[in-house]
Design a protein around this nucleic acid. Sequence first.
DNA 1: AATGAATGAGAATTCATTCAT
DNA 2: CATGAATGAATTCTCATTCAT
Lengths: 211, 211, 211, 211
Amino acid sequence: MGEKLPFRARNPDNTKQLILDAAKIEFAKAGLGGARVDKIAETSGANKGMIYHYFGGKEELFAAVVEDAYLGIRSQERLLGLLDLKPSEAIKKLVEFTWEYYLENPEFITLVNSENLHEARHIAGSKQLRKLQKEYVDTVREILERGAASGEFRKDIDAAQLCITIAAIGFYYLNNRHTGGVLFGFNFASREALAARIKFNIETIMRMVMN
Amino acid sequence: MGEKLPFRARNPDNTKQLILDAAKIEFAKAGLGGARVDKIAETSGANKGMIYHYFGGKEELFAAVVEDAYLGIRSQERLLGLLDLKPSEAIKKLVEFTWEYYLENPEFITLVNSENLHEARHIAGSKQLRKLQKEYVDTVREILERGAASGEFRKDIDAAQLCITIAAIGFYYLNNRHTGGVLFGFNFASREALAARIKFNIETIMRMVMN
Amino acid sequence: MGEKLPFRARNPDNTKQLILDAAKIEFAKAGLGGARVDKIAETSGANKGMIYHYFGGKEELFAAVVEDAYLGIRSQERLLGLLDLKPSEAIKKLVEFTWEYYLENPEFITLVNSENLHEARHIAGSKQLRKLQKEYVDTVREILERGAASGEFRKDIDAAQLCITIAAIGFYYLNNRHTGGVLFGFNFASREALAARIKFNIETIMRMVMN
Amino acid sequence: MGEKLPFRARNPDNTKQLILDAAKIEFAKAGLGGARVDKIAETSGANKGMIYHYFGGKEELFAAVVEDAYLGIRSQERLLGLLDLKPSEAIKKLVEFTWEYYLENPEFITLVNSENLHEARHIAGSKQLRKLQKEYVDTVREILERGAASGEFRKDIDAAQLCITIAAIGFYYLNNRHTGGVLFGFNFASREALAARIKFNIETIMRMVMN
DNA sequence: AATGAATGAGAATTCATTCAT
DNA sequence: CATGAATGAATTCTCATTCAT
């Protein structure tokens, strides 16, 4: 009598998701090396045992978080219906979507950095990600081909390079907003600065693809 | 026999530099949270106490490493003599230099990422860095103005945005070479892939600036 | 065989108390600066991590030990029932109790010294201690007043000063028994020396209060 | 050429004394365990090598400091010329002197505590201290005998116990001024509190010795 | 499933002491 | 004598992981 009751109801799926959400925040903020399992347990409302029960360990949890993050952006991209648009509109929309996704999901950026710091070993085995990525690049390639066929776009633009560049110009700006703020002396995250950047980015890409 | 030799160099400047060099490698490889002071001491050949004696602590050592890394790229940039070149040549050379610097100093990329993960708090107070950065952007601005004056370049290109973009397209590719390799399915670091990328990057920037 | 047994007691209250007991001994023997957390862990049978888990750190543990030590003497004092005695008997009993408490709890003395070395910052916030102390001084004051009213005691003896003096003459003798032994050339802790001292102390106090 | 000059002139006696003075402050403030050799070197203006050169080590330095502290009080006591005074005046003067010495040399108190924490092992071998102490107790004994002979004092007061009590009532109050302040709720070091205390102390001792 | 106490292997940091210059 | 760089053994503290309940 008088024993402490278990804190939360048993709800496996929910617990797992809560852990994943908390872990995403913690890993994004501190990196794999800096993240604390205790913190994730506390933030998620679960306890440490559950993390090991569901994910096996810190590193496996990190792998799950990173895979989840990539699935997030790729699955939203698929919803854009790019192939239904005029090629130039499709490319513009993709640039805008990428930018906005990074803005709304800033943890994606630091998670990707962490995964690269660790040489991508946590996603190396994910066929799902490779498949989604292939679909994405194929979509861009088809857009480029249609645009080239209609004379709107230049010919022989490399789809992978373009995908990388579209990501790069948004990712880098937001990734380096803190050091950028110090070095350039302006607030990279102000409404005006963000507006100026997306405008510049669209122009960069459009000048690259348009005939 | 086989014992570790004492490090009785009694050469403060040298010891400090050896620590800094070893720290750069370790912080670049593991981030601030993942780096090990023990490892830095061992790699540098110095004693752990010396790290605290000269730098005060792990975090201050990290700050010194990051500042040093920025000083490295900025000081090499100054040696390019960009203002002595024709504007289009200057911009091309800057794109190439940036790319090559990243290639030859891959630790710069992860150090910058780490510093951004920690919201730039380690370089926030460095006036020297701000000054060097300002000189750099001013140089690019002057190149753009000269190019615009001669009709070679478009008018009103924002120097800061261009600087950011030049960095972005190289930095992102190399930063994400591991995840990129997994997702895109090709080796980002092969001779051919690197050649293709720098070509694409030069084209991206030149199409952005040329009239 | 002969290996240290894991401490899988899973009994938080007990573990905390074991740590506290071991810490009291170690802090008493070596002071805050000289005490070793490792030693406390080993003596208590608990794991080092538990100390940090339950107390937060060495200094907080010290604070808990000091507070506990004060609570010990004050709570035993309350059991004396001094107000039920004739004033002169009450004062005599208090002098004797104080002396015996110091004799039986020698760690109390060095803990108090340590706390004073650190300017009482660990107990500065303890309302409980202030309250107990107030009750104690109030009791002595009432004894003095009753004694004065009956003509047995002198009038206007300051209760706080008397409390301090009662503590002083016992505390100092026992605190300085080692240096005293060297300098005076007799064993302060011998049965005879102790008997002589308590006799002298009772006389000192009684001559001070009696009419 | 361009080498850094030695900071201070060579002056052995002075250096030794400076170290001793700095050590007294540091050991008094932090105890033997908490004191830092680095700090002593810095405060004294000497360097660490000198400490080892002159004293042999931290513990020997502590021994020197403690011995010096005892020599200080005993040598000043001898200057009081107590035997030239009327017995009651002599005792009163001794109580006052002891109090004032503690007030003016607060480090004496904590050094004595530290030495007792370490069971007096640093002064255990000092014949000089024993000799001075014997002279001191003999002086008090003679005062008591003279006072008893003249009928001013009670007979058979133990000189050692009286010496201890005279020290105790001042030492304890000042030693415990920090915890006392917290527990009793008044400032032990205020001018008024100090005046009240010395008055109480003189009364305590005089009531003990006077017929 | 869930809890959080307990573990133990590190990790950062400190510090008395030594010694080349 | 004097300096302060260098050492290495401790010391405090952390943290991923395990496990009794």
